[in-house]
Simulated assay, not measured.
Amino acid sequence: MMEYIKGMLSELESDYLVVESGGIGYRLFCGNPFSYQHLLHQEVKVFVHLYVREDVMMLYGFLTKGERELFRKLLDVSGIGPKGALSVISAAPPEQIISAIQKEDVSFLTKFPGIGKKTAQRIILEMKDKLKNMPFSNGIEPIKTENQYPISSVPLLDEAVEALLALGYTQGEVDRVILHLREEDKAYSSIDEVLKRALKELARG
């Protein structure tokens, strides 16, 4: 089965990217397509997972093997499908997610979109013993404290996007500023701080 696709990054959309290889454009669904913005029209290497269920066949793309492995382990958790697994790995670095699971940090996991308390508990129960051989299992990065989370956290990004669109900014303007904030990857304690930073960036034009 396919391990990765190497080719030209030809297109970016809100939930997928297109990599052209051998005259074929592969649609790869991923959590943060715009993290590839700086590589548009350049050669990229994307690790893939082929998801097949009855009449559904979809390719999912990942920056690293570690992300893909974590995605696959999340798929093994009862009640979690590709969309849910993708939202989890898109919300924080794999090291932090694994750390949260190993420390049974339910409050951290429930910050992810679509993950309630029961689902978080099920993730911990079904995954904790399966993470020992993951590349991040030793020397993993500690979870941020004092309610500080990186801007790449999906909940913060989702709230910021909705708020900016409600203020009348166009989707293009919002995408540009969110990409800029994601690249900065600073820690914020509230959505208000994120919006202040975003508005300041938008004011620059």
Rank of each mutant, 00 (worst) to 15 (best):
G7P: 03
S10C: 02
E11G: 00
E13H: 13
S14K: 11
Y16Q: 09
Y16A: 10
L17S: 05
G23E: 13
G25I: 01
C30Q: 04
C30P: 05
N32R: 15
N32T: 09
P33D: 14
Q42C: 13
K45C: 08
K45H: 07
Y51E: 14
R53K: 15
V56T: 06
M57A: 09
Y60I: 11
F62M: 10
F62V: 14
F62K: 06
L63G: 14
G66V: 09
G66D: 11
E67H: 12
E69K: 09
R72N: 11
L74V: 03
D76C: 02
V77I: 08
S78R: 09
P82T: 08
K83D: 15
A85F: 13
A85R: 08
V88H: 07
V88C: 12
A91C: 10
P94M: 07
S99I: 00
S99W: 05
A100V: 06
A100K: 11
Q102T: 12
Q102Y: 02
F108A: 01
F108L: 04
K117T: 03
L125T: 10
L125Y: 09
D129P: 11
K130Y: 06
N133Y: 04
F136Y: 09
S137I: 01
S137F: 12
I143M: 08
I143K: 01
Q148I: 07
P150M: 05
S152T: 13
L157F: 00
D158Q: 09
A160W: 04
A160P: 10
L164E: 13
L165E: 10
A166E: 11
Y169N: 04
T170W: 09
Q171M: 09
V174G: 15
L179F: 09
H180F: 12
H180D: 14
R182M: 15
E183G: 01
E183F: 04
I191D: 00
L195K: 14
L195R: 07
K196N: 10
R197Y: 07
A198P: 08
A198S: 14
K200C: 02
K200Y: 04
E201H: 07
R204N: 08
